[in-house]
């Protein structure tokens, strides 16, 4: 039973991270119809920035909580800045190009960022400081759920809640929904579409950075390549739930996390990534609109 619970909670933890990253894919796709291939790299850069700042503060002799807060903020700020800049450089000039052009540009951006971090930092795995403290009250449950699992789950829940409120009730949220429905029309009624798009990239990037920080602290090491696999898996989650749908991304993230956790726990851990890729291929082939997505009708 404990083994089952252990797999279940580690699946949920994984799932929350996937969900956090998947939200970035799904929001960007919903608004400009682009698979932001470089999104995984934003997550990686978020984790790296947190690592660098945290190490710096450790050397300066700060204590645990302050390090967590400051490095977390830095990760979010920098991820947002990168997301914003990437959109301006690699996607905005291509907004009216054929569909493959921005996608190729995104792939190029992803490769560029990976190598940028590798060259400027290192290609080795770096140990990531354990920023999340161990809570005493979690001791009795430590067989199947750790403190960092709890923190990850709670943080994800709060982030989702804030995002939902933002999209439902704020002016910007309304503008985002309008732009997602019909960009031309949104422009005509006076919405500053460029701002909405930038904002979407920023929000997506911040969520990815939170995910990056949490998982890096949970797993304990990072390198420049973590964004690639995490990116594809989060994309799988987004497609699974129905790309363009925000609850879909969360649902997809949890389903993928649990599937992976149970599959590696009960079947084989060698093929961990194959399960995710296989799932991705199967959904795209049999139900490309995902669980909560609506199928698009081709306009002729």
């Amino acid at each position: 039973m404990n083994y089952f619970l252990d797999l279940f909670f580690s699946g949920l933890t994984r799932g929350s991270i996937y969900a956090l990253i998947a939200l970035g894919y799904t929001m960007v796709y919903g608004i400009i119809g682009l698979i932001n291939f470089a999104h995984g790299e934003i997550y990686m850069i978020g984790a790296f920035t947190a690592l660098i700042i945290a190490s710096l503060l450790t050397v300066l002799g700060m204590n645990g909580m302050a390090i967590l807060v400051i490095s977390g903020l830095a990760a979010m700020v920098y991820a947002a800045a990168y997301g914003y800049t990437i959109e301006k450089i690699a996607y905005k000039p291509l907004r009216n190009s054929p569909r493959l052009a921005p996608l190729i540009s995104a792939i190029g951006m992803s490769i560029f960022l990976q190598n940028y971090v590798m060259l400027a930092q290192t290609s080795d795995f770096l140990p990531f400081p354990d920023l999340i403290p161990n809570f005493a009250f979690m001791e009795p449950y430590s067989d199947f759920i750790g403190s960092s699992d709890l923190v990850i789950l709670l943080t994800t829940a709060v982030a989702m809640l804030l995002l939902t409120i933002m999209i439902k009730y704020t002016r910007m949220g309304r503008a985002m929904r309008a732009t997602a429905q019909d960009m031309q029309m949104a422009m005509l009624v006076g919405i500053d579409v460029n701002r909405v798009i930038s904002f979407t990239f920023i929000i997506g990037s911040v969520l990815a950075a939170i995910g990056g920080l949490l998982i890096a602290s949970h797993v304990g090491q990072i390198n420049f390549y973590i964004g690639f696999i995490a990116g594809i898996k989060a994309f799988t989650a987004a497609v699974l739930g129905g790309i363009g749908s925000i609850p879909g991304a969360v649902l997809g993230g949890f389903i993928l996390g649990l599937t992976e956790s149970f599959a590696t726990g009960y079947v084989s851990s060698d093929y961990e990534d194959v399960f995710a890729f296989g799932l991705l291929v199967l959904i795209l082939i049999f139900r490309p609109s995902g669980i909560l997505g609506r199928s698009e009708n081709q306009k002729v």
């Binding site: 569909r99 493959l100 996608l103 991705l280 795209l284 082939i285 490309p288």
Partner: peptide, 19 residues
Amino acid sequence: VLRLRGDYLAIVTLGFGEI
């Protein structure tokens, strides 16, 4: 992958390659 749209095709082929 015959029925897939351009960008999905890209991701599925990527998935196949990795598999």
